[in-house]
């Protein structure tokens, strides 16, 4: 079943997640409800401890919510994980140093049992997609940080999951590399029409990339604002100097500040 354009791919209703720690329970997520539609690019932004990464991990089935419901492609998150419904990109590239770049991209394909020929086709295709075609035979530690992160995105794309979950993927990179990768990511999203959930703590990055910006705040982790971006799908880098862009950025900043006031 291919979901149509306005059906929700990820749907959370009244999601709660409480960690039991030694001294007091920590409310990582409280009453989080959100629908993400097919083809959306959703950013989660907020200060540390607001639960944005925890929410992403819930969607990935890496954490189990303690209350509420969460469906991914109409299944529970854990079923979706087993059905390999998404590709996940971590804060660090996390490539295996003992495998070449191509070998790293093959890793999920080997685990999922793709044929050898199919593996090679897919590796070539996604390497091309992230513009690393000439580097397949290199080892990760021979590449720059930005290239490593591109390789890890290729790894998440290789098995054609419709959903891409990205947890501050560019957080550790410098501004110039980050701008470049943002541009590339947008182009990739336009071409592949994937649904992307993207965690960040950079306001410009969130506004530049997203169709929907989810502002979160901590203690307890919750959603304080959801902003649907009026920006067009085509976004050159200098869109960041337009009044529309600055206005959305302003609203995000206000939302973040409001979340802080009730500390």
């Amino acid at each position: 079943m291919v979901p149509n354009a306005n059906s929700s791919v990820i749907s959370a209703k009244a999601l709660d997640l409480t960690f039991q720690t030694a001294d007091a329970p920590v409310h990582a997520l409280k009453d989080v409800s959100l629908d993400i539609a097919q083809g959306d690019f959703v950013s989660f932004i907020g200060p540390s401890g607001c639960g944005k990464t925890t929410f992403l991990r819930c969607i990935a089935g890496l954490e189990t919510p303690t209350g509420g419901t969460l469906t991914v492609n109409g299944m529970t998150a854990d079923e979706a994980r087993r059905a390999r419904a998404y590709g996940y990109v971590f804060q660090a590239a996390g490539l295996y140093p003992w495998r070449t770049i191509a070998g790293n991209i093959k890793l999920p394909l080997e685990i999922m049992g793709y044929s050898k020929a199919d593996q090679n086709d897919r590796v070539a295709r996604v390497l091309d997609l992230v513009e690393l075609s000439d580097f397949g035979a290199k080892f990760p530690w021979q590449l720059s940080g930005g290239m490593q992160q591109r390789a890890s995105i290729a790894r998440a794309l290789a098995f054609d999951a419709d959903i891409l979950l990205m947890d501050e993927p560019f957080g550790a990179l410098d501004e110039i590399v980050r701008d470049h990768l943002n541009e590339q990511l947008l182009a990739l999203w336009t071409r592949t029409n994937k649904t992307i959930a993207f965690v960040t703590h950079s306001i410009p990055e969130a506004v530049y990339l997203s169709t929907k910006i989810v502002v979160m705040s901590p203690r307890p982790g919750r959603i304080t604002d959801v902003i649907d971006s009026p920006l067009p799908k085509e976004r050159p880098l200098d869109i960041r100097d337009t009044p529309e862009f600055i206005e959305i950025a302003h609203r995000v900043r206000e939302g973040l500040r409001a979340g802080h006031e009730d500390d």
């Binding site: 590709g87 971590f90 685990i111 999922m112």
Partner: peptide, 14 residues
């Protein structure tokens, strides 16, 4: 192994 490497394997349902 780091927890990130193990999580990666879990996202593949390995």
């Amino acid at each position: 192994t780091t927890s990130m490497q193990r999580d990666l394997m879990r996202t593949y349902g390995a």
